[in-house]
Design a protein around this nucleic acid. Structure first.
Length: 872
RNA sequence: GCGAGAGUGGCGGAAUUGGUAGACGCGCUGGUCUUAGGAACCAGUGUCUUCUGACGUGGGGGUUCGAGUCCCCCCUCUCGCACCA
């Protein structure tokens, strides 16, 4: 199609045709639509299991269907698409699916605000977002698409739950749980950040509730061990997971309570300091507190407990750390010294770590030290460092370093590390303690008091208890006729028809579970379901799952470092143990891409301003100067956002993709920059013209095997670029340098003036550019490939290979240094002997100048690089 | 406090194994073409300079013929965890 330049928006590069011929203009909109339709119609990216062909499974974290894509999505999916297209052109059988993490609160909130049913809202958003994603030209196999709210997905999730229930991996217990009063639901520990809800950032309460849990703690060790083997994961993600699992080796010790038969269990990593335990601290919530409190301490204790409860929410989260406590009136006995030691309640002892009780060794634990000083409790040194003597009165802080035991009876003189073993063994013999391992990780609470989630397939019967819904009755479907008001908890709990059911076991009237799953359950196995999204006999088609899994490359945001990525690893191991697949880990390699950032701007009067509301540095509403804010993550609240749809409208998807990939390496934050976008658009125009302006010249040219003169230089550049781009994409993911390399080649093409005489070399260079750019800008690449006269698609043409012979130059330039400073350059033939290289270097005039009056010490020759002449 | 990572021109960034620091892009300067240029093309662009060179990758030391890269000390910043017994 030929277009007059006047009909093109000012942001699209327009080149006035030269030499009278009218070349086809680059109009992104037209060609992008054309190729997107073609790809969809011909199923270019459809994946099929070909069991003897090497596979490559590339996955980006699927989006929540909010209705609109943002630049973070564009970046995430552009990165993934480069790899998918690259691997496909390299001949891999690529699986690159897309779907929707479709359950969750925004749908319910929309229902409450606008009266739209969550299902309607969600599926409409999905339709709209699918269209937006398709406009980016991403190479998905759309036939595998599903939403996690599809009944065909819930059904199999419920089936997995039943199998976990049968194995004891899903169980119900009453416990104190994190309750978000604003979301009106329970939160997992992982979903509480600084004491606040990860979603709405409101303060979280504690509440006693009966909840379903997944026994992730059964897998704590395996999850931890594999963090050492996931070499394709960023270290910081693994570190966060190790930290979260929090495995520590230590000892469980029983302290008898004076005048009772009860004992208090403590966990300690320092049994070597047991002789120094001079008191004991309990969490205020400890179950034995009521028994321990004496009449005279009653009032002080209850006052303290209330105080801590209040402090719990506000101050504990804010990092206030004054050590506070209260005496219970009771004492216990140090099992080694036989000493009576007082039992305190302390604000710094946490009920959900260890046993909720701590033996206090003030000389060797900083918190106990501060506590002891505050309440004038005895401090006893039991570890003496080498070459120093600790004196209690002079200590200003606890000593936590190494040393030998003192004041420790038969263990005196023992080095503290080995004392840990010896004291543990001693306690074990007397049945007063034993070596244990403690984890910070708790079981995963999955019950949510929400409507828009997967129903938990359980029925409560007065006679039979919690009875699983029989497999053949699945799925348990959400009732459509619900009223979402946002008040009084889950609408399912009020929906009589949903609740009323007969017990599958005894047939008597019973009641359905009204809680739904945490939405992280859905995202814990969706990647496996993509292997067989339509399979209707089980959650997974084992053959297909085993073929595709693990995901070779997973790409997403760092914010899921602990929650999603830990749950998904856990689920994979569960599915393996249920016999549904054979892999140990879901994601062989993980890339955590950086955020998309932009400077925020605000007006003193009108608050945050959208970029288009700032004209010449002034607020367009009042004309006052706009204040430059920080460069920070694009967010609606700060209005520092670029709408991908508008961006694509103005520049085209290829430019949007190219900039996202070129401006920064994928794992770093990307600073959005309008001029940078224009630069990328300009580059595509340059590529376009390089091809279209030379079409006639190269029309009948054959690609040569050898070339001479400047043609040989271009040919070498072409093959060097093929090599560099291949290596930069493969494994390194340095897309910015890959693109830079293609830019260099394009610059060389413009500089190549012998096109008329050597059209074959020119064609080879142009075709390399078009093919190398395909993963980045697939539409322009496809169109240019067609213009170059190829009947076969550029995708089918495959990834170009470099000719090793073409890489080698006859003559190379060596740098000549004198004492490490560059003093000259010499041109030598490639195979020149070392002696000749040295001679040539020494002959250089400037080099000689710097050697004058000095004595030659030695000459270092780095083949192909440089010569360093050392003089003194 | 613990853990992970980063610090390079006016800006985004490059330098893969210790071998010409600043590729590529943005911005800026000059030129060509043009009725015009916010288009395109060409050239230049780390700092200082006596134009020869000197200096230059957060700071200081070290190893080396040679250090952005390796080692030691320090500073700054980002992220995560944080009373974990």
């Amino acid at each position: 199609m030929y277009i007059l330049s006047t009909s093109i928006s000012r942001n699209v590069m327009v080149n006035r045709p030269r030499g009278g011929t009218m070349e086809k203009q680059y109009v992104p909109k037209d060609i992008e639509q054309k190729w997107q339709q073609k790809w969809l119609q011909s199923g270019t990216f459809k994946a099929t299991e070909i069991f003897d062909k090497p596979k490559y499974y590339l996955l980006e974290m699927f989006p929540y269907p909010s209705g609109r894509i943002h630049m973070g999505h564009v970046r995430n999916y552009a990165i993934g698409d480069v790899v998918a297209r690259f691997k496909r052109m390299q001949g891999f059988n690529v699986l690159h699916p897309m779907g929707w993490d479709a359950f969750g609160m925004p749908a319910e909130n929309a229902a409450i605000e606008h009266g739209t049913h969550p299902a309607k809202w969600t599926y409409e958003n999905i339709d709209s977002m699918r269209q937006q994603l398709q406009r980016i030209g991403l190479s998905y196999d759309w036939e595998r698409e599903f939403a996690t709210c599809d009944e065909s997905y819930s059904r199999w999730e419920q089936s997995i739950f039943l199998k976990m229930f049968a194995r004891g991996l899903a169980y119900k217990k009453g416990s104190s749980v994190n309750w978000c009063p604003d979301c009106q639901t329970v939160l997992a520990n992982e979903q509480v950040e600084d004491g606040c809800c990860w979603r709405c950032h409101n303060l979280v309460d504690q509440k006693e509730l009966e909840q379903w849990f997944f026994k992730i703690t059964d897998y704590a060790d395996e999850l931890l061990d594999w963090t050492e083997k996931l070499t394709g994961w960023p270290e910081r993600v693994l570190a966060m997971q190790r930290n979260w699992i929090g495995k520590s080796y230590g000892c469980e010790i029983e302290f008898p309570i004076v005048d009772t038969i009860e004992k208090i269990k403590v966990f300690t990593t320092r049994p070597d300091t047991l002789f120094g335990a001079t008191f004991m601290s309990l969490a205020p919530e400890h179950p034995l507190v009521k028994q321990l409190v004496t009449a005279e301490q009653q009032e002080a204790v209850s006052q303290f407990v209330t105080q801590v409860e209040r402090q719990d929410k506000v101050e504990r989260a804010s990092g206030e750390n004054e050590k506070l406590g209260v005496f219970t009136g009771s004492c216990s006995v140090n099992p080694l010294t036989g000493e009576k030691i007082p039992i305190f309640l302390a604000n710094f002892v946490l009920m959900d770590y260890g046993t909720g009780a701590v033996m206090a060794v003030p000389a060797h634990d900083q918190r106990d030290f501060e506590f002891a000083r505050k309440y004038a409790l005895p401090i006893r040194v039991v570890i003496q460092p080498e070459g120093d003597e600790l004196v209690v009165e002079q200590m200003t802080e606890a000593y936590v370093g190494p040393g030998k035991l003192v004041s420790s009876g038969q263990f005196n003189g023992v080095e503290h590390e080995s004392a840990k073993e010896k004291i543990a063994a001693y306690l074990d013999d007397r049945n007063e303690g034993r070596k244990t391992v403690n984890y910070r990780l708790r079981d995963w609470g999955v019950s949510r008091q929400r409507y828009w989630g997967t129903p938990i397939p359980i029925i409560y019967c007065d006679a039979c208890g919690a009875v699983p819904v029989p497999e053949q009755d699945l799925p348990v479907v959400l009732p459509k006729d619900v009223e979402l008001t946002g008040e009084g908890g889950s609408p399912l709990a009020r929906h009589q028809e949903f609740l009323k059911v007969d017990c599958p076991s005894c047939g008597k009237p019973a009641r359905r579970e009204s809680d739904t799953f945490d939405t992280f359950v859905e995202s814990s196995w969706y990647f496996a379901r993509y292997a067989c999204p339509k399979f209707s006999e089980a959650p997974l088609d084992k053959a297909a799952a085993n073929y595709w899994l693990p995901v070779d490359q997973y790409i997403g945001g760092i914010e899921h470092a602990v929650m999603h990525l830990l749950y998904a690893r856990f689920f994979t191991k569960v599915l393996r143990d249920l016999g549904m697949l054979d892999v140990d880990e879901p994601f062989a390699k993980l890339l955590t891409q950086g955020m998309v950032c932009m400077e925020s701007q605000r007006c003193a009067e009108h608050g945050w301003l959208y970029p288009e509301q700032v004209v010449d540095g002034n607020c367009s509403l009042c004309g006052k100067p706009a204040e430059q804010g920080r460069n920070e993550k694009m967010s609606k609240s700060k209005k520092n956002v670029v709408d991908p749809n508008q961006l694509i409208e103005r520049f085209g998807a290829d430019t949007a993709r190219l900039f996202s990939l070129f401006a920064a390496p994928p794992e770093k934050d990307l600073e959005w920059n309008e001029q940078g976008v224009e630069g990328c658009s300009r580059f595509l125009g340059r590529v376009w013209r390089a091809v279209t302006e030379n079409l006639e010249v190269i029309a009948t040219a054959e690609i040569p095997a050898v070339a001479e003169g400047t043609a040989a230089d271009l040919r070498r550049k072409t093959h060097q670029t093929i090599k560099k781009v291949t290596e930069d994409i493969d494994g390194r993911f340095h897309f910015n340098t890959a693109i830079a390399a293609v830019m260099e080649l394009v610059n060389s093409i413009y500089a190549f003036k012998a096109g008329q005489q050597q059209p074959g070399v020119l064609r080879e260079a142009l075709e390399a550019v078009v093919r190398l750019l395909n993963p980045f800008v697939p539409h322009a690449s496809a169109e240019l490939w067609e213009l170059l006269g190829h009947a076969e698609s550029v995708e089918a043409a495959g990834w170009p290979k470099w000719d090793a012979a073409a890489l080698v130059a006859d003559e190379i330039t060596l740098v000549v240094q004198v004492n490490g400073k560059v003093r000259g350059k010499i041109a030598v033939a490639v195979e020149t002997h070392r002696d000749a290289v040295e001679a040539a270097a020494l002959a250089d005039q400037n080099v000689q100048r710097f050697m004058e009056g000095k004595q030659l010490r030695k000459i270092i020759v780095v083949p192909g690089r440089l010569v360093n002449i050392v003089v003194s």
